[in-house]
Simulated assay, not measured.
Amino acid sequence: MKGHKDILKDKHGRAHNYLRISLTERCNLRCTYCMPENGVQLTPKGHLMTYEEIYDIARLFVKHGVTKIRLTGGEPLIRKDIPVILEKLASLPVELTMTSNGITIDRFIPDLKNNGINKLNISLDSLDAEKFKEITRRDQFGKVYDNLLLLIKEGFCVKLNVVLIKGFNDNEIIDFIQLTRKLPLTVRFIEFMPFDGNKWDITKMVSYNEVMHRIYETYDKNTVLRIQDAPNDTSKNYHITGYQGTFAIISSVTNPFCDTCNRLRLTANGQLKNCLFSSTESDLLTSYRHGKPIEPIIQKAVQSKFSMRGGMDTLEKLRDPNLHSNNRSMISIGG
C-alpha cells in the first residue's frame, strides 16, 4: 500500500465520490423496518463524532475525491448542533444533501437554504394516517405531510422514499404515483431490505417487477416513460405523461446496482462501512482521536469491498439470516 493515491477506488475499479454521514443513532420515529421492536443499544455520547470530528474526517474524504455528502441518521435534525454541522460542511466543495423524516424540518428551512441544501429525501411509507402510525409507532402523519408540501412550496427538490412491504402498503403504489400528477417531486419505491431486528423475509418484499405490474394495470404502457438515469443512480426512473413529478424504483434486492456503486457510509460513532449490506466496519474515529493517519484504514476498507451486496451475491445467500444478522439495524447505520 504505497502512498494514498486513489484510496477511494476499489479493486473492481469503482471510484467512491459519495459519502453518507450519519449524525446520530437517535430518531423521533420508530419505523419497524429500521428499528428493532425493543430499540437499539445507543452508543455513549463520548464515542460519537463531535461536529469538529465530522468536519475534519469529511474534509479528508473530500481531499481524496468525495464530491457529494448526504447527512442521515437516525434523524439528523434532532442533533442540537445541526446548524453548526451544516455551516461547517457547507464550506467544503461538495454537494450537500440530507435525508430526514420531515417531522421538524420546517424549523430548519432557513438553515438549509443558507447552507446551499436544496435537495432533500423525505421518508414517508404510507398516505394513510393509521398505517403511518402503525409502521412508525408515532402519530405524526399530518406533520410530515404538511412539511412535505411546505418544502415543495419553498422550492426544494424533494424525493419521497417509500419502503414497500407486501400486505401493508403495496396497495398504495398508485396513490403515491398520483401525488406526482400535481406535485413536482419524485416518489421512490424501495425494496424491503434485511437488517438486524427488522424481521425481514423475502415474502414481505415487493419487487421491481411487481411494482411495474401494478403500474401497468392502471396506466397505458405508452404513457409510462423511462427516464435516463443519472450516473451511479440507485434507481430506475419513470415519468407518467402529463404529470409534473416522476417516480422511481430502488431494487437493491432483486436487481442491484452494485457494479456502479460510488457510496461509502460513515456511522455516527465513526465506523466506515464500505457497503450498506456489509457486516464489517472499519474504525476511523479511534485512530483519528489518537492522532494517527486514517487514510490507510480507509484504503483497506475500500479495497476489501465485495463486488455485490457485502458478499451476498445471490438471493439464496440473502435468504440466509446468518449472513445478514450480524449487520447493524438500519437506524444505527444511517439511512
Rank of each mutant, 00 (worst) to 15 (best):
I215D: 15
P293I: 00
L151D: 13
R188L: 04
R181A: 15
A15C: 01
L19D: 14
R263P: 15
N114I: 02
D81I: 00
I109G: 04
N322R: 08
K11C: 11
K119I: 03
S252T: 04
V206R: 04
D283K: 00
E210I: 02
I69M: 09
V62D: 13
D259I: 00
V211M: 12
L151G: 09
I78T: 07
D106A: 10
K317N: 03
S279E: 11
L185D: 09
S100N: 04
T136L: 12
G155K: 09
L48A: 03
L264N: 12
M49E: 08
L164M: 11
D128Y: 05
G311E: 01
L160V: 14
K131E: 11
Y33V: 02
D220T: 06
I333T: 10
S332M: 09
L318H: 00
S235E: 15
N121R: 02
D201V: 00
K199S: 14
K119H: 12
F277Y: 11
S126E: 04
N115C: 10
R265V: 02
V187C: 14
L151S: 09
I7M: 12
P321E: 09
S126D: 11
M330L: 13
R328H: 13
E191Y: 01
I105N: 10
D201M: 03
N274G: 04
H239D: 09
D175W: 06
Q140Y: 15
G3D: 09
Y145G: 03
N147V: 08
R181K: 15
R214Y: 13
V224D: 09
L71P: 00
G142P: 02
I250C: 04
L149D: 11
P110A: 00
S252F: 05
P184K: 03
L323S: 06
T180R: 06
N269C: 08
N209K: 08
T254M: 04
L48D: 12
E134C: 01
A90Y: 14
L42H: 13
G46Q: 09
V158W: 04
N147D: 13
T104C: 08
W200D: 05
F132M: 07
I135D: 11
A301C: 08
R30M: 05
L60E: 13
F306A: 05
K305L: 01
E75D: 15
K273N: 05
G291V: 02
T104E: 14
K88A: 14
I250W: 02
L148M: 10
D56P: 03
L149I: 06
G242I: 01
P110M: 00
E295R: 02
S279C: 07
